[in-house]
């Protein structure tokens, strides 16, 4: 498994990344790598800096250090340009536009791209076919959807930017186990059918390791352990120490 990882071209490379959130320094030199078409999971306890890392990669918090996406240095770029490059965040707690309709939410996903009106409509139709529940509710306000439906909407909205890689922040947060399972099924499908790369931040280690190729464990703003997802899952001492199951 490591051999395929090493030979695959790098899509995202993070080198000695520091970030602050408000007055607090949260990341103290994180380095990691996601290969083209790979699913990587980032595990760690609450407050370890996982969400901040994803926000830093998306240009949403002050950061310093090296971030390369698809060969380009994006460490100083604003969020709009990073979205245009195809690196799109699905935020924690969904972060949908509660007062706007489902269809408007989807259209906003393509906001910073150069897509024309008809291209946006075509993408939006495609996503409503992929998630039929969004199609049924296209004129409803997003705030009225259930948690699972909002998570689907948040993923659908991210897909509107025609991304090459999604950053998913706690996609299972606050969802019932059955719903969480279907969210991960969706992610697996996106990965397998579209070759989308995924960097998933999760507290649900078991489910996320199940679909991941590679895993990093972050603690107190630093990467402590990394390795193929299977070897992390099979290492009982590691699981106990960092993942708590």
């Amino acid at each position: 498994m490591t051999t395929t990882r090493d030979s695959a071209p790098t899509l995202l490379e993070v080198n000695d990344l520091h970030a602050r959130y408000g007055d607090a320094r949260v990341l103290h030199g994180v380095s990691l790598r996601v290969a083209e078409g790979e699913v990587v999971v980032l595990l760690g306890a609450n407050g370890a800096g996982k969400s901040t890392l994803l926000k830093a990669l998306s240009g949403l918090v002050d950061r310093s250090g090296g971030v390369t996406f698809d060969g380009a240095d994006i460490s100083g770029e604003p969020s709009a340009r990073i979205v245009r490059r195809g690196l799109v965040l699905v935020p924690e707690g969904r972060g949908t536009f509660a007062d706007l309709t489902v269809e408007e939410n989807l259209r906003l996903g393509a906001y910073p791209t150069a897509a024309t009106r008809s291209e946006v409509a075509a993408s939006s139709d495609e996503i409503m076919t992929m998630f039929p529940i969004l199609g049924e509710r296209s004129t409803q306000r997003a705030g009225l959807l259930s948690g699972g439906e909002q998570q689907m909407l948040a993923i659908g909205r991210a897909l509107m930017a025609r991304p090459r890689m999604l950053l998913l922040d706690e996609p299972s947060l606050g969802l019932a186990p059955a719903v969480t399972k279907s969210v991960f099924e969706t992610l697996r499908t996106l990965h397998e059918e579209r070759g989308l790369s995924l960097l998933i931040v999760e507290q649900n280690a078991e489910l996320s390791l199940g679909i991941a190729d590679y895993a990093y464990v972050i603690e107190a703003g630093l990467i402590r352990v990394d390795g193929p997802a299977r070897s992390i899952r099979d290492n009982e001492g590691l699981r106990r120490a960092y993942l708590g199951y």
């Binding site: 998306s58 949403l60 604003p78 969020s79 709009a80 340009r81 990073i82 979205v83 245009r84 965040l89 935020p91 972060g95 949908t96 536009f97 509660a98 007062d99 706007l100 408007e104 259209r107 906003l108 996903g109 906001y111 910073p112 009106r117 909205r157 930017a161």
Partner: peptide
């Protein structure tokens, strides 16, 4: 218009607006 939709997005959810790349 697209810009009008952007305005409505920023009015109700500035954090989510930043995530999708609205300035």
């Amino acid at each position: 218009t697209k810009a009008g939709l952007g305005f409505r997005a920023v009015a109700t959810a500035p954090a989510a607006s930043r995530v999708v790349g609205i300035r």
